[in-house]
Amino acid sequence: MKIKLKHLKVYTWLFITSIMILISCQDDDLPEVGDLPDLTPPSANFVAIQKEGTNPEEDFKIYFLTNQSVSSTDYQWEIPDGVILLDLDADDDITPTLASENINLEFPGEGTFEVTLTSSDKLGKTSTITKSIEVIEPEKPDVPDPILVNSDFDKLPKSSGSDCTCSAWINKSIGDQGESSSGNGGSDNVVKFDNNEPDHLYQEFAVVPNADYTVEIVTSFKSPTGGSFPSMLELRVLAGSGYTSGYTPTYYTDTVEFPQDDFGYSSISQVEDTANNLLVEIQENPNNDDYITYSYTFNSGDNDSVALFIRGIGGPATGGGGGDFGYNSGDEEIRADSITITAINL
C-alpha cells in the first residue's frame, strides 16, 4: 500500500510540473491586459509639389513636401547633401526640422534627388518610402521687343509746335530737336542733325532687367567738307536708375502725348555720367552719303526702363546755331532714317 502511494505522489508531481511548463511557454504569446493587435499599421507616403513663384530662375528649385502617411504619428525625413530645409512660414513660431510632418526643400539645381520618409505609430511600427524628385528648370519665356513710338521718323503731330519727324523724340533739357528732312527715297521721312547745332533724339522705353538687346540705326552722313570739325553721331543707352530723382517714366503711345521738357534725364551732366550709361557708340563719317545700317548690343542690367539718346557731336562745345548744351555737331549734316530695338532670345 505504501508503494502505490509513493507512485501516486510522483505521478502527481509530474503532472503539475508539466502544466506549469506549458503555462510558462504560452505566457509570451498572450496579450497584456487591455492590449490589442495593431490592425492599422502605418503606411508612409508623401507628394512633392514644385513652387510656382514670380522668379522662375530661383523658384523652380523649391518644393513643398506634403505628408500623406496613414496611421502615423511620428515622422523622419532623409534628404540628400546640398538640399536645404526651408522655413517659408514667417508667421509660424515652429522651426521646421527633419522630424516635421511636412517640409519645404530647396534643391541646388537641376537633377534627380532621392528623399526618404519614415513614418511610425505609438506602437513602434514603422513604414518607409523613398521617392525620386526630378528638378527641372522651366524654359524662360522670350523677352519681348521694346516698344518705340515713331521709330521710322514719320512726320507726325507733337504736343506743341508744327508736325515733325522728331515727334516723340524730344527732350529740350538736353538738346535741340532734330528737324524733318527727306532722304533714302522718301519725303519728310528722316531726322536731320544740322551741322554746328546740338540736335538730338531722346525716348524712354520699358525693358526686361538683365536682358540683351540689339539696336539698329540707319544713318547717312553728308560728304566731308574738309573742315576742322568733322561730324560724328553719338548713340547712348541710358539707365533708368539715372532718371531725375523722383521721376516715374510713362510710356506714351501717341506722339502728341509725349512731353518735350522736364522729364527723365534733365541735364547733360546726367547723360555723360559713366554710371548712367549702358552703351556708348560713336559713328564717324564713312566718306559717302549712303544710308548705312549700324548695329549695337546692350544689356539692361538691373533696369526695367532705359532711354535712347542720340546726338550730333564733333563741333565746338559752345556757339553754333542752336542752344548752349556743351556740344554741337561738326561741319556735316547727318540724317537718321529709322531705329529698331529687338530682344536677343537664344
Rank of each mutant, 00 (worst) to 15 (best):
V208T: 15
S241W: 06
S100A: 14
Y296E: 05
L308G: 07
V207K: 00
D74Y: 12
A44C: 05
S72V: 02
K122F: 06
S228L: 11
D273K: 14
S245F: 07
N45I: 06
D91I: 02
T130M: 01
T118C: 02
V115Y: 08
E78A: 14
A239S: 15
G242M: 11
Y251Q: 03
T214F: 06
T214G: 00
D29T: 14
L308D: 06
D290W: 07
V47T: 15
G314Q: 11
Y327C: 01
Q203Y: 07
S18G: 13
E101A: 12
F221S: 02
E134F: 00
E52P: 00
L8S: 13
G312E: 09
D273S: 14
T225H: 04
D302L: 06
K131S: 08
V70A: 06
P249H: 13
D262A: 10
D93K: 12
T97H: 03
D199K: 10
A307D: 08
N287R: 13
G34T: 14
M232T: 15
S187D: 07
D89S: 11
P31G: 08
S228T: 15
G226M: 08
T340A: 09
D89H: 04
S267R: 10
G34V: 10
V280L: 05
T340G: 04
A307W: 05
E257Y: 03
K131H: 09
T318S: 15
T318H: 12
A239R: 13
T214L: 02
S180P: 07
T274G: 05
H200K: 06
T112C: 01
S295Q: 09
S266L: 04
T165C: 11
T225R: 08
E134A: 08
E204R: 09
C164I: 09
K4R: 10
R335E: 08
L30P: 00
T219A: 14
V306W: 01
N150P: 04
P141H: 04
Y63S: 11
E333V: 14
D273M: 03
P37Q: 12
S223A: 12
P209C: 03
L117E: 04
I282G: 07
G183S: 04
F60I: 05
N210K: 11
T128V: 04
D212T: 11
D152H: 09
L5D: 13
Y265A: 04
N195Y: 04
L238K: 01
D74K: 15
S119C: 02
S220E: 12
D154F: 06
M1R: 09
A317K: 13
E204M: 14
I133D: 00
D91Q: 03
G226H: 07
R335W: 06
S160F: 07
G321R: 06
Q203T: 10
D289L: 07
T293D: 09
Y63K: 05
P259D: 10
D324I: 05
L65A: 12
L233Y: 00
A206E: 09
F64H: 15
D199N: 15
S300L: 06
L14R: 14
P230W: 11
F15D: 00
D324T: 14
S231H: 08
D262M: 03
P230M: 08
T128M: 05
V208K: 13
Q177F: 00
E106V: 03
D145L: 09
N45Y: 13
S160Q: 08
F46A: 01
D91F: 14
T116E: 02
P146H: 11
I16N: 02
N288Q: 08
D152W: 02
T112M: 02
